[in-house]
């Protein structure tokens, strides 16, 4: 599944996400912010996109941008959505800020035939260096101080691989990138952003 998508003005991980979404697919983007990813996918792939967002300001921006947005709190699950009613459900760089992490991943796998999850790899060597130096990591992908961070469930690539194994989740594809470039060698050390394409092994 390869789509040729122009990514010049968008976030680096968008290009990989776009390659994992089919043309015309029905897509749910959880924690969609101002709807940038959905507009990107809508423009290039003509997806039928819906965002889920909690924040008033982001909801307003989505409405102003003409992005379909549903205002709700992901921590409450996806009870308003039918089983397997979306082709792809995306959680882009939000997993680490979820309290109810297990629940939301299960809910995504229930609602979506495929799931895309991306998160900052806590095992990235620069994070490790800062820990060794005796400080909590602060970087472009983890821009918060320990006392004001929304990130409550940071994990490494190895952690997430184990999570998938233990939760009966099939990893269809995994890509790890640093500064927009794919990392294949020692991804848990050299990779900054982890991206997974998943589906449930359970019958839903």
């Amino acid at each position: 599944m390869q789509n040729n998508v122009n990514v010049t003005n968008f976030r680096q991980d968008f290009a990989i996400i776009a390659n994992w979404v089919q043309f015309g697919a029905k897509v749910l983007d959880l924690g969609c912010g101002d709807g940038q990813l959905l507009r990107f996918l809508g423009g290039s792939l003509e997806v039928k996109g819906y965002g889920v967002e909690k924040d008033d300001g982001n909801v307003l921006n989505c409405v102003a941008n003409g992005t379909n947005v549903i205002q709700m709190d992901l921590e409450d699950g996806l009870s308003g959505f039918e089983n397997q009613s979306f082709d792809t459900v995306i959680l882009s760089q939000t997993l680490q800020a979820m309290h109810n992490t297990e629940n939301i991943v299960n809910e995504m796998l229930r609602v979506g035939r495929e799931v895309i999850v991306t998160f900052p790899n806590f095992g990235y060597w620069r994070n490790r260096m800062q820990i060794i130096a005796g400080r909590m990591p602060v970087s472009k992908t983890l821009p918060y101080q320990w006392f004001d961070t929304p990130n409550v469930h940071l994990c490494t690539i190895n952690d997430f691989d184990d999570f998938c194994k233990n939760h009966n989740i099939e990893i269809l594809q995994r890509k790890v990138i640093t500064e927009g470039k794919e990392v294949t060698l020692f991804p848990n050390v050299l990779g900054n952003l982890a991206m997974y394409r998943l589906k449930s092994r359970k019958a839903i």
């Binding site: 039928k48 989505c62 992005t67 379909n68 947005v69 709700m72 009613s85």
Partner: peptide, 16 residues
Amino acid sequence: IVKALLDNESKVSYAE
């Protein structure tokens, strides 16, 4: 209402 519209793939936004 939102759920029914999503089922039908209607264009919909919902503000609470």
